[in-house]
Design a protein around this nucleic acid. Structure first.
Length: 498
RNA sequence: GCCCCCAUCGUCUAGGGGACCAGGACAUAACCCUUUCAAGGUUAAGACCGGAGUUCGAAUCUCCGUGGGGGCACCA
């Protein structure tokens, strides 16, 4: 794509603790785009170092969601790769080796403080209105002392030995240099007492070992960003390009989507999780387009993007660091756009299962015609059954209350149905050309508005107030069904007028 | 409380010192088209958080406020 760019190796590294939501999907998308446009690799890595929060179902949900969106990894648990394994729980030894290395070069230390002690320290600090942080009890234990206590069977963790004075300067691609006072840095735990690494070590080691060139992650990592850079430096590694994406805010722009907000949004039927998008009638193309534009833009007018457009036009530099509120109605808009962008054949294929799930037998020859008739008026696939179910039904129910009113009584309706029937019976071909004017003449005859007559005919043929244009419907329905529905309606109207 | 980040229409955004009485999109309203509903077209309303600087000139640079967000776990 762009020859000046070196192949990027980027990873999407979710923690299997829940479903993939639009925030995660957007990160994965940017990863994917960067990989594709640079001829690099998109890697999926499962960060399952927290056995307590691990959810069996989460991993398959991530994969399903990613696949549905079309973001298929080049390397990962399923496809393997030169950096296997891609599941952190399987890389325990690797992290331990590196933690040891850090201890040996004086950048980490064994800590024997118990959780109870640490809690006490934290409480005291809070009482004194200090920022809770590790108090350094074990920081200066000698190798011998530490070895002895380990020998004695004491439980321990390994902590990073953060510098206590001076400043650390790190560089985020979107924000530039960020400077922090080292006195604010905590001695983060690297290896838990279980022997498993925590994110701070595991992710850094993996990112280096897997040759990750760009770390794209959420801005919730900004506070610990300096620690991460320091770990890279302590190991003598070259840092990747760091990119911290903005968070998504609630639709009103006030506050991040909390767990409760997420539940609330779900109750309201708002699309939060990728797994729900399909059954809510959204196209993966639309979801991609939508999330791509939340925090990124191409220029001042282009908004419609296919995945190929995005691969071509995406650039990290145009990412926006400020938090963004989610605009759900825009997804509907994009969905309409992408539906209309589909070829009629493609659209037909996508609506077919909806009709089948509604219990209709779908005739292929009709399907394409139906697709043509409804494509420009569907915004979500969920609507197609309501909109076009009448094509498949044997009989339709007329909503009399909607048809008969002070403007049109039953006698008039019956008369109209009768005249339309006669007209259609005499017509070899019923279409816009042959039937429109005669229908208008009938309206004049009956002293009703043409619109009224067409509305009546629409109700008779579809049982609906709104539908695709009548002359689009008739050839699909077929002469027989048209006439039988007219006959049926005529009977009902006559009954009513007696 | 402490640390870090962010700040243009209701929302997503363009803008990177003069091209801006600030452009686009969604949503809203009106009109046109029209056999309904869409689609399409036209139009309306709607924003540079505040204050100091720097400069001939600031939405754009600096500082201070304010507001919003994130973080402060043997979670990621």
């Amino acid at each position: 794509m762009s020859p000046k760019q070196d192949p990027a190796r980027v990873r999407f590294a979710p923690s299997p603790t829940g479903f993939l939501h639009i925030g995660g999907a957007r990160t994965a998308l940017y990863d994917y785009l960067l990989a594709r446009q640079s001829g690099g690799s998109f890697i999926l890595r499962i960060e399952d170092t927290d056995q307590k929060r691990y959810q069996e179902s989460a991993e398959s949900d991530f994969k399903d969601a990613l696949y549905w969106l079309g973001l298929v990894p080049d390397e990962g648990p399923d496809q393997g790769g030169s950096c296997s394994p891609y599941r952190q729980s399987l890389r325990k030894g690797i992290y331990q080796d590196h933690a040891e290395q850090l201890i040996n070069n004086g950048n980490a230390f064994y800590c024997f403080c118990t959780p109870e002690q640490l809690n006490q320290v934290r409480e005291d600090q809070m009482k004194r209105k200090e920022t809770p942080h590790y108090d350094g009890t074990c920081r200066n234990l000698s190798h011998e002392q530490a070895a002895e206590r380990i020998q004695a069977g004491e439980s321990y963790v390994i902590r990073f030995k953060s510098p206590q004075s001076g400043k650390t300067i790190v560089r985020d691609l979107l924000r530039g240099e960020i400077t922090v006072d080292n006195s604010n840095l905590d001695d983060m735990i690297l290896i838990k007492s279980s022997g498993l690494a925590v994110y701070h070590l595991a992710a850094m080691v993996d990112d280096h070992l897997m040759g990750i060139t760009h770390v794209i992650r959420g801005s919730e990592w900004l506070p610990t960003f300096p620690i991460h850079a320091l770990i890279f430096r302590a190991l003598g590694w070259q840092e990747p390009i760091w990119v911290h994406l903005s968070v998504f805010l609630k639709p009103d722009g006030k506050g991040k989507m909390s767990k409760r907000d997420t539940e609330l949004a779900q109750e309201k039927g708002l699309p939060i999780f990728v797994k729900d998008m399909d059954k809510m009638g959204y196209l993966p193309e639309s979801v991609i387009n939508w999330i791509a534009l939340m925090g990124w833009s191409f220029d001042d007018k282009t908004e419609f993007f296919t995945i190929d457009d995005l691969i071509e036009k995406f650039s990290l530099e145009k990412l926006n660091p400020s938090p963004a509120a989610i605009n759900f109605s825009k997804l509907d808009h994009f969905n309409g756009l992408h539906i209309r962008n589909l070829s009629p054949e493609d659209f037909a294929a996508r609506i077919k299962p909806w009709f089948e799930n509604a219990g209709f037998i779908v005739e292929e020859n009709k399907l394409l015609q139906i697709a043509n008739a409804i494509q420009t008026r569907t915004k979500k696939l969920t609507e197609v059954v309501d909109m076009a179910g009448f094509f498949f039904k044997e009989d339709i129910d007329l909503v009399i209350d909607r048809i008969i009113s002070d403007k049109l009584n039953a006698t008039q309706a019956a008369e109209a149905a009768h005249k339309i029937t006669q007209l259609f019976q005499n017509l070899e071909v019923i279409d816009l050309e042959t039937a429109e004017q005669p229908l208008r003449d009938i309206a004049v005859d009956l002293e009703i508005k043409a619109g009224q007559l067409f509305g009546l005919l629409r109700e008779i043929l579809t049982g609906q107030k709104v539908s695709p244009p009548i002359f689009d419907i008739i050839p699909i329905l077929g002469r027989e069904k048209v006439l039988s529905r007219l006959e049926n309606a005529l009977g009902i109207f006559q009954n009513l007028s007696m």
